[in-house]
């Protein structure tokens, strides 16, 4: 009996050893990057914190109260939301159309496909500056020589046009990636199903609505998740293309949090952290809603 216990213990000890050996580094780095900072973040949000040394005064939930009354924060969230809606819709529609185009079987479609994907190889910082040049210089030049009024205006000087620039460049950047994901979905639609529908006399539109779109729901859930996340949390492109200008009219929520939570002196880091946590709650709610929707669709299918 005692011996059995010892055997049991020894076996358990061995298992713990294996566990540490195989998963130890993953657990440790996970705690380092996400576990500890995430939990500590809740703690921080309860403090009135003026320096990065981590010293502050306990303030209960007052930071959350301040966050709800922080007009600049909600304005940046609102414009981020607006930008997200435009970008997500346009990116997915364009990506879907392009996925069709480059799988039609024309010669050279692989080259086109590769070119469309190319912006995804390059980070938002560099892409942003390339487009600062194109919009700031080439558009201007085109406006002068063609006489089209729109291109003679200063895109980065007017809030609406700066916003539009961000949407255009984001769609341009992301749609190639989403196109590839949707092609993967498109290839999963069985050919004989489409052929059977054709024999039954279904037109192109009917085939799209009745067969292709329903079969592609899983792929769309992926692109929707990715575009939502990329757009809602965009930072690099925002920084290089407009830097929030003019007059903070294009300062999206990530940039707002970086500006108040890291860069500026004299701001309350506890408040910034509370605002970051509110952002997390919103993102988590969206992700959960999407997951629930996806599960329901899966069951239906």
């Amino acid at each position: 009996m005692v011996r059995g216990d010892m055997m049991q213990k020894a076996k358990q000890g061995q298992l713990i050893g294996w566990q540490l050996m195989f998963t130890g580094v993953t657990i440790a780095t996970f705690l380092l990057s996400i576990g500890i900072p995430f939990v500590y973040g809740f703690f921080l949000s309860l403090f009135d914190l003026k320096s990065v040394s981590g010293e502050g005064t306990f303030a209960w939930l007052s930071n959350y109260g301040d966050a709800f009354n922080d007009k600049a924060y909600w304005t940046s969230l609102w414009i981020t939301l607006k930008y997200t809606v435009y970008t997500v819709v346009l990116t997915n529609v364009l990506a879907f159309a392009m996925a069709f185009l480059v799988t039609a079987g024309t010669r050279g479609q692989n080259v086109v496909r590769a070119a469309i994907f190319m912006p995804n190889m390059i980070g938002g910082i560099v892409l942003g500056y390339i487009w600062v040049f194109i919009i700031g210089r080439v558009f201007m030049d085109f406006g002068e020589s063609s006489g089209i009024a729109l291109f003679q205006r200063s895109f980065f000087g007017e809030p609406e046009l700066a916003f539009l620039s961000l949407v255009i460049v984001s769609v341009w950047q992301q749609s190639g990636y989403m196109m590839i994901v949707l092609i993967a979905g498109l290839l999963n639609v069985p050919r004989d199903l489409i052929e059977a529908a054709m024999i039954d006399g279904a037109g192109a539109w009917q085939r799209l609505r009745a067969i292709i779109l329903p079969m592609m729901v899983p792929a769309f859930l992926v692109t929707l998740f990715l575009t939502l996340r990329n757009s809602f949390l965009v930072y690099d492109l925002n920084l290089s293309l407009t830097a929030g200008d003019p007059y903070n009219s294009t300062e999206f929520v990530s940039m707002y949090l970086v500006n108040v939570g890291l860069r500026s002196t004299g701001s309350n880091f506890g408040l910034a952290q509370a605002e970051a946590i509110i952002l997390f709650v919103i993102v988590a709610a969206i992700a959960w809603a999407q997951f629930a929707y996806g599960k329901r669709k899966e069951v239906e299918a």
Binding site: I34, P37, G41, L257, F269, A276
Partner: peptide
């Protein structure tokens, strides 16, 4: 989101 763990 990275922004949630950024300040900590």
């Amino acid at each position: 989101p990275f922004q949630v763990v950024m300040i900590p």
